[in-house]
Amino acid sequence: MRLTRLLSVLTSVVAVTALAACGSDTDGAADATSTASGTAALDTLTAGKLTIATGEPAYSPWVEDDKPESGKGFEAAVAYAVADKLGFAHDDVVWVRTTFDAAIAPGPKDFDFNLQQFTISADRKKAVDFSSPYYTTATAIVSIKGNTGADATDLAGLKDATIGGAVGTTSITLAESEIDPSHDVQTYNSVEDSVAALKAGQVDAIAVDLPTALYLANAELDDGVVVGQLQGSDGGDEFGLLLAKDSPLTSPVTEAVDALREDGTLDELATTWLTDAAGAPVLQ
């Protein structure tokens, strides 16, 4: 699903030429030589392996059962699709875990790329690289039935609600600007911490990306409800694969993502793993 397919093609040509020069050989050997040469041409953390990072823990619908190696869940499936485009077999993918903050911080990385819903932003690009977007989302407000604002049908209905969210996310920034709540927005170290605050009654609602809101309302929260999407999020946040600043893999990874978008794979994976926006109207 990406650019390294070009590298595989080029190395295949070399392999075919070599076979013609030295006589007969098996097609299997030629294919193996081509794949090995293609992956070897990529400057990965470990030769012949692709090291991919995600969060600890990683949640559905992004990763199912906290097992990215299964390939189940939207981001796990995207990761393996990218790996395939780059010429790496399933068994050549190595998974590691990082925190969100550690991943976006400047400095060396212990992964080739990381995906845990990183929104692409100019500020973050000062410290890290991103691929082109593999998913575009919207910000949504999720609450619990009976809470202030849980039955809101417009932004005014959320005015007196206490809103929470993960610090540094675009969702919390959008909640502040669009809702302009009468209470200070409460920030937490992670989405998980904000969910815990919602469950504990410390906040009335939280701002998260729409797929997470749908999951929380349907699977994680008792009497959970998606209040709606924020109007300013039309077009959505763009999630990109995160790489070390000036990584030699940024270009091939981006080409792989582009190829997956163009051939419809990303849309297919989103349809498979992410719930659509039914029941989450845009709040005005």
Rank of each mutant, 00 (worst) to 15 (best):
S171I: 07
V191G: 05
P181D: 15
A58W: 05
S194N: 10
F118T: 08
Y59S: 10
G168V: 05
Y80P: 06
R124Y: 09
A256M: 10
T271F: 00
D180R: 10
I179V: 12
H183F: 08
D65M: 14
T169R: 03
L86D: 00
T153G: 12
L214R: 12
P211I: 07
L266V: 14
P211C: 11
D43P: 06
G264N: 01
L19F: 09
V253F: 06
S233Q: 04
T169M: 07
L249C: 04
S177W: 10
D129K: 02
E56C: 03
Y80T: 11
D65C: 09
G168Q: 11
V13A: 10
L19C: 10
L243F: 12
S34A: 03
G224W: 02
A36Q: 06
T254P: 05
A20P: 00
A18D: 13
T212A: 11
P252G: 00
S143R: 05
D237C: 04
A156I: 12
Y188L: 04
A18Y: 11
A244N: 08
V128A: 03
W273Y: 15
A41D: 08
A77N: 01
V191K: 04
D276C: 11
A76W: 03
L210H: 02
P108C: 14
D31F: 05
A41R: 07
Q231E: 15
S190Y: 04
W62S: 04
P133C: 13
L249R: 07
T4Y: 04
K49T: 14
V195P: 01
V253R: 00
D276A: 12
D84H: 15
W273A: 03
G240T: 05
D263E: 10
G165L: 07
A20Q: 12
V142R: 07
P68T: 08
D267A: 13
A196R: 12
V96T: 15
V208M: 06
A219M: 03
P108G: 13
G48E: 11
A29R: 14
Y188H: 11
A196V: 08
Q116K: 15
Y134Q: 00
D25Q: 13
A197L: 08
H183S: 14
A140E: 02
L210V: 09
A150H: 05
A47I: 07
V257A: 00
T250A: 02
S8R: 12
A197P: 00
W95M: 11
D160H: 15
A21M: 09
D209W: 03
R97M: 07
D65K: 10
E192R: 12
G28F: 02
G55L: 06
N147F: 07
S60Y: 13
G224M: 09
A20V: 11
Q231G: 08
R5I: 14
F100H: 14
F130D: 00
Q116W: 15
D25H: 06
V195E: 07
S132T: 12
I172G: 01
D129R: 01
A89R: 11
V195D: 03
Q202C: 06
K72L: 08
T136M: 13
A213I: 06
L50P: 02
